[in-house]
């Protein structure tokens, strides 16, 4: 029962996308669209197979994904403890909130020029942009999360005998977790866009680079292939990472009305 309904749900989800592909397959030849303007389905398919066979697609995907993964993991590891530290004291959190807010509205793409100046074109600059996009947003949200944990909850824990350590692991961290997850979603969204932009400007490998170089040669089939890969990768990140995370925290604890 469960399996079949999940399967049919997946089918219902994919069907409209399949219709879109059929429309594309019919309309491009029917309207006589030139390949320099928009590619045919077959051309994109061929570009996909070619780039898989010569390993270039994998190289670009691996480069992009590893940059995002490294930047994000580093950022979360630093931002969460820092956010909690800043959030514990009312005074400190009130003081740093405007700062964190300022830097989190600036996070990501706006740092590309200075990052490329500081780190040169390449891996360092891109990871810096991603780190920065995730770091400030997650730190800011963690800070918000900790400072909005009701004082009564902290007092309750203290009067039940919670020490510093268990206050951290049993009250502050779980209390802030829904905000942390929200921060990770927003930050990753900025990071992913920052990644594509930075790769267009500042590197010689990665999905953004792949798209931007194809533009020089009017290879629209490679561009569209890249866009589909980018879209699919983000959907995978969303379904396999972000949605389960949100389910495990925000929805489960009933902190958001459905």
């Amino acid at each position: 029962m469960e399996r079949t309904s999940r399967f049919s749900a997946a089918l219902i989800f994919v069907a409209p996308l399949a219709v879109l592909v059929v429309l594309w397959a019919v309309l491009v030849p029917a309207l006589g669209v030139r390949p320099q303007i928009f590619p045919s389905v077959a051309a994109v398919g061929r570009a996909g197979i070619d780039s898989i066979l010569d390993g270039s697609l994998l190289r670009h995907v691996a480069a992009s994904v590893s940059r995002v993964a490294i930047g994000t993991v580093l950022a979360v590891l630093v931002a969460v403890p820092l956010g909690i530290l800043m959030g514990v004291s009312r005074g400190v959190s009130a003081f740093v909130t405007p700062l964190m807010r300022f830097f989190s509205v600036l996070a990501g793409i706006a740092w590309i020029p200075i990052a490329t100046l500081w780190f040169g074109y390449g891996f360092g600059a891109i990871v810096f942009v991603i780190f920065n996009a995730v770091f400030f947003v997650v730190a800011y949200n963690t800070l918000l999360g900790v400072s909005t944990i009701p004082m009564t909850l902290r007092h309750a824990a203290a009067s039940l005998g919670a020490g510093r350590r268990s206050m951290l692991t049993d009250v502050l961290l779980p209390g802030a977790l829904p905000n942390i997850v929200t921060g990770i979603r927003t930050g990753l969204g900025f990071a992913w866009r920052g990644l594509i932009a930075a790769e267009m400007i500042a590197t010689d490998v990665g999905l953004g680079y792949m798209l931007f170089v194809a533009r020089d040669f009017y290879q629209t089939e490679v561009i569209v292939l890249g866009m589909i890969v980018i879209g699919t990768l983000w959907l995978l990140i969303d379904r396999l990472l972000l949605v389960p995370l949100e389910r495990a925290t925000i929805e489960r604890w009933g902190l958001v009305s459905p």
Partner: peptide, 17 residues
């Protein structure tokens, strides 16, 4: 599903085309 997919492609990836 179409909306989700186009949202996932993201703005900046549209720049080249």
């Amino acid at each position: 599903p179409v909306l989700l997919f186009f949202q996932a492609i993201g703005d900046i990836a549209w720049l080249p085309i």
